[in-house]
Design a protein around this nucleic acid. Structure first.
Length: 533
RNA sequence: CGGGGCGUGGCGCAGUCUGGCCAGCGCGCGUGCUUUGGGAGCACGAAGUCGCCGGUUCGAAUCCGGCCGCCCCGACCA
């Protein structure tokens, strides 16, 4: 066990067996965080400031919409790439369906309309003409208004009804990457915007069992992705009837805990039963020649995952990216004064990038980038800290002479810099990145476990969700007995007051007889309660 | 949609109550010099229809009327 990645003690000088020099911890400046306010001071504002400091996105001139900037979009592209591979590996194909849904389609499933009607953008005209004051006004009304898709069950269902004739046509396993629009009252970058990017899988099956299996399989894909790539531990569970997707029979979700102890639904998977098959007329002849209604599912994750990622790992110095989802794993900051030094240092940096590209991490080569911009060193370094790049390297004339690189890790204090032999660095980077990845997951899991309680008395429940003083962030995950079918009315007032909701019925929990915390009725299992995004 | 707040160079704000001084400050931006292995210093400079429309007035960022937009709190939500 050696290498600079396990300094014996945080904040102290780290000793390394192979490094050329001792670790250097610059303590000249008083400790000061890059992000203000800090998480503790004002969590919601901290979130906005991290997005700004990391250059992920900004609010657009269009109400409720965001501009996703290159760094933020690169993270989303990585998510897309990995998930897309996982979808393909489970037999799905990509396709694309229209942005516009005829109003009449949306009406095909009663619960579905009711759920989405209040947040639909509607296109009513197809032409602009100069108005009396010289400004353009809509003209030429459409015969039937078009809804900008809030989700695509109905338009895809309509299409599937023509594709499905025989049991031999099944299953249909299709995904689409798309944008959707939901006219929300209040928006927050990445977490809830009027327009957002997502993927939606839509499948059709011959039997109920197969559709249920698909629903749970994709939920598991999401959980695996969240944990292995985003280093974000999640709880898989079934939604309560109140939280169910409009039109679904069962909705499942992965729930993650953010650093303010709130739950964030990071992905959903719906067993739609035959509801949409009925509404959209998806029928097939089975092996016995009988006309049968199909069974469908749908499942999705969105750019919300970027917000989830941010709130899982980031600290008061900005974004922290798990190496497996970071667009760049290593950023190299060349240091030089003269033109001669510049040429020499840059050549050396380029050689290092090439050497790193030979090393593999996860499913690809290590992505290293040289930042040779004419920006002052300290300023430049902090930009990369705030953007969450896992490893920073400084390479200057002294390193060239000594055959070293100066390394800083995003999971270590910013001012902790370790000199590592250059060859050593190249050889061990994959291992160190893997260690960072695992460390982030472990830390997030510990955080969650420390704020998860089994609670059996209402007064404990109230206390758990009540802050002792202004500065404390209260709450977390509460696992409580809850008679789902009968307890809702009894629980309503308490939950509303505490702003807590039933997040899900965790899967895989062993049955346990108990008494509903709210209604006193018998309960067979515990339900996960939390404040939620 | 209800309650509260706010619109002044790219960003953050002061000035508005009590009309008149060249519309100011900080950050950022540009140029030059000095610096550079941890968020630089000095000097010079560019940049504003004071949200929009109308009214009052000799004179409006400031007063009056209307409109638009944004933010926060609630109801709705991936």
């Amino acid at each position: 066990m050696h290498g600079p990645l396990r300094p014996p003690c945080p904040g102290r000088r780290a000793l390394t067996a192979t490094a050329v020099g001792d670790a250097k911890v610059n303590e000249a400046r008083p400790t000061e965080n890059a992000i203000r306010p800090t998480r503790r001071e004002n969590y919601a504002e901290w979130y906005q400031q991290v997005i700004r400091a990391a250059d992920l996105a900004e609010v657009s001139p269009v109400r409720g919409c965001m501009v996703i900037k290159p760094w933020g979009y690169a993270i989303w592209e990585n998510m897309q790439r990995v998930l897309d591979g996982m979808f393909k590996a489970t037999g799905h194909q990509n396709a694309y369906f229209p942005l516009f849904i005829p109003l009449s389609y949306l009406e095909r499933e009663a619960a579905h309309v009711e759920g989405f009607a209040k947040e639909c953008a509607v296109v009513t005209h197809h032409r602009l003409e100069p108005g009396p004051d010289g400004r353009l006004v809509p003209a030429a009304p459409l015969e039937e208004p078009l809804v900008v898709r809030p989700t695509s069950e109905t338009i895809i269902g309509e299409t599937y009804s023509r594709w499905v004739q025989s049991y031999r046509d099944l299953p249909i396993l299709i995904n689409q990457w798309a944008n959707v629009v939901r006219w929300e009252m209040r928006t927050r970058l990445f977490l809830r915007t009027t327009e957002f990017l997502w993927q939606e899988g839509h499948t059709v099956h011959a039997t109920r069992e197969e559709a249920v299996a698909e629903t749970l399989r994709m939920l598991d894909v999401y959980a695996t992705f969240a944990e292995q790539f985003l280093a974000m531990p999640v709880i898989q569970g079934e939604k309560t009837p109140e939280e169910r997707f409009p039109g679904a029979v069962d909705t499942y979700a992965i729930e993650a805990m953010m650093q303010d102890h709130k739950a964030l639904q990071a992905g959903t998977s719906h067993f739609l039963g035959q509801n949409f098959a009925r509404g959209c007329n998806i029928k097939f002849l089975d092996a016995n020649g009988r006309e049968t209604l199909a069974w469908t599912t749908s499942w999705g994750v969105s750019t919300r995952l970027v917000g989830a990622l941010l709130m899982t790992h980031s600290d008061d110095d900005g974004l922290v990216l798990p190496p497996r989802i970071a667009p760049v794993q290593v950023v190299i900051l060349p240091i030089f004064r003269t033109d001669a030094e510049r040429a020499e240092v840059l050549a050396s940096c380029r050689a290092l990038v090439a050497a790193l590209a030979e090393q593999r991490f996860g499913d690809g080569p290590i992505q290293a980038e040289i930042d040779a911009r004419d920006v002052r060193g300290g300023e430049k370094l902090w930009q990369h800290v705030k953007r969450g790049v896992p490893i920073r390297l400084e390479i200057g004339p002294r390193d060239l002479a000594a055959g070293t690189v100066a390394m800083g890790r995003r999971d270590r204090p910013v001012r902790e810099k370790v000199a590592v032999a250059r060859d050593e660095f190249v050889a061990h980077v994959p291992e160190w990145l893997a260690e960072m990845q695992a460390g982030l997951l472990a830390r997030a899991r510990t955080f969650r476990e420390e704020r998860t309680r089994r609670i059996d008395r209402l007064e404990d429940f109230e206390a758990f969700f009540t802050a002792a003083d202004e500065r404390e962030i209260s709450g977390g995950f509460a696992l409580c007995h809850y008679a789902v079918e009968h307890g809702a009315a009894a629980a309503d007032a308490v939950l509303k007051r505490l702003k807590v909701t039933a997040r899900c019925l965790p899967l895989g929990a062993e049955p346990e007889a108990g008494t509903c915390l709210f209604s006193g009725r018998p309960s067979a299992r515990r339900v996960l309660f939390a404040r939620a995004y």
